[in-house]
Amino acid sequence: MTQQAPSVTAYPVDPLGSPMWEAHARTLFEDHPVRFEPALKLSMPQIAEDQHRFPVALDARGLGEVKRMVIFADLNPIPLAADYRPLAAAPYLAIRIKLDQRTPVRGAAQLADGSWLVSGAWVDAAGGGCSAPPVSRVRGDWAQHLGEIHGGAWPGDAGATRLRFVIRHPMDTGFVANIPTYNIETLSISSADKVLGTMEIWAAMSEDPAFTLMPMAATGATLSIAAHDTNGRDYTASVTAPAS
């Protein structure tokens, strides 16, 4: 009865009616203004054919300066998949996530004034995306390919380079018996000594996580990728930015 009201303004009513909206909004957006924004483009397939590897693309280009981008699934046991800071990059992020059940999947972008734009949709999915063992664990060859990175760079729009890469990693959630949590937790993209983007990553991201980013890089510049996992292992790769 004497409980203090939280010191925040109310969040807008969730158009998806998710039971977890308030809780996630409070954790992620804190006291910043939040609005649902259809112009923040969150693209996903119409069907979750594989609940272990559901592709999501978040495109905040054309909405002003973007400081942070997050992709999360309300009802996943690990809701947040990626928290990306496009320091010198077009605000575009495409990844693949796990889905543990039917859930809202959302993208959010924080503008320079601190306010958050949010977009999302319900996605139907069979259970177990987070609690089934990764394919490479079942096959037993995960360690042989750990850290292999396949990728490339292509000309992008407006001075950006389209950078795509896939890192071989089991991305263990910790929800499978006798397999502790083991995931890539940070990623950074840089050129020369300038950091172009950084990302925090959780095990809600799919096994062999795949990234599509749009760092600003001059033709011929070397783009360096550096990732770090929860066992302290480092992964590095590099590609040359193509002529646009």
């Binding site: 990175i149 396949h150 990728g151 896939v166 992964y235």
Partner: peptide, 11 residues
């Protein structure tokens, strides 16, 4: 396809 068509770029 990505595994087969995209080159290795790790050091």
């Amino acid at each position: 396809l990505e595994g087969r068509l995209l080159p290795r770029i790790d050091k």
